[in-house]
Each structure stands twice: as structure tokens, then as C-alpha cells.
Amino acid sequence: MSRWLRAVLVVAIASLVVVLALAFRRAPTDIRTGTVGKPAAAFTLEKLDGPGTWSSEQAKGKVVVVNFFASWCIPCKEENPALVRVYERYRASDVVFIGVLYQDSRDSGLKYVRDNGVAWPTVIDDAGRVAFSYGVFGIPETFFIGPDGVIVGRHIGPIDETTLVRGIECLRVPNAGDCPRASASR
């Protein structure tokens, strides 16, 4: 085997090892999209349960949990008890929860909200523009936004209580540790 051929083989194998090492080093739940680490898109949407609108301006300077959901979405129903518990825990604090109904009708969304004890404000994203600006893949998806308005983390799939609390606490308490940038549960 010539010297050149050997060198090329060594380089090819080394490149393959590097590519595989980089690919396997990354956790499969680390879903990188364009919006994490960037300012959350401002939005104003119609309230689901009544007249009027809700604007993201109302939550300025607060920790915000944005949850995209729909009544037809089974995993949304799965995660709902955790959302209800964590909402009750932070209800009196400066943490704002907002539910965004996505790809669903107002009537079905309202019934879901009433049947499942959703007490936080909910809005309807009829045209899917807000979901698009947040980079939503599918529902449920939950975003954590810091008081500076920057999306710090996201969770794809049904979220559990521990992940919710960790996502909120790392934004509320200084030096609470790094916030999880992205996670997934499916």
C-alpha cells in the first residue's frame, strides 16, 4: 500500500471517528432550534375564555411559562396535572403562565380548559403565527422566558413537575444553576 493511500485511509478513519464522536456526544433530547437564547416574539392574541386580548407585554419583566396545547392532544392531557400543580405553587408569585391553544377550535379549547382545571390565562393562536415565531414543532411544547424577555429553555412533549419547577427556579433564583436549554420527553 502506497504512503499516500495509507495517509488518506488514516485521515478518512480519523474523520469518521470525529464525526461519530460529535454525533453521539449530543444528547438526543437536546433539540436545537433557532429560538432558544433569543428574545421571545411579542404577541397579542384573543383570550380563549372571554372577550379581549392578552398581550405578552403584560408579562414584561416576569418569568413566563408559555405552554402550547390543544384539546385533541393526548400528551397535553397527560401533562396537565403537573401544570395545574406547578401553577398553584407559583400562583401568588411573579411567575406568569400562559396557555396557547394551537390548531384547535375555540369551542373545543374552552371545553378542555374547563374540564381540566386550567386556571391560568389561555389564548387562541388561530393562524399558528405565534407557534411559528416560537419555532413550535408539535404540541405540547413549553417555553421558559426570563424577566429579560429571552427564551431560556424549551421542552418538547409532555412536561413533568420536576422539569417545570427546575425551568422556573433557575430563572427566579439567582445562581440557581444553569437552566436546561432544551429537553424532550418523547
Binding site: R32, T33, G34, T35, F132, S133, G135
Partner: peptide, 8 residues
């Protein structure tokens, strides 16, 4: 689109 979903 890239701002929302990345180069992907």
C-alpha cells in the same frame, strides 16, 4: 423560517 427552526 431559519430564525424559528434553525438551518434544519
Amino acid at each position: 423560517f431559519r430564525a424559528s427552526y434553525g438551518d434544519w
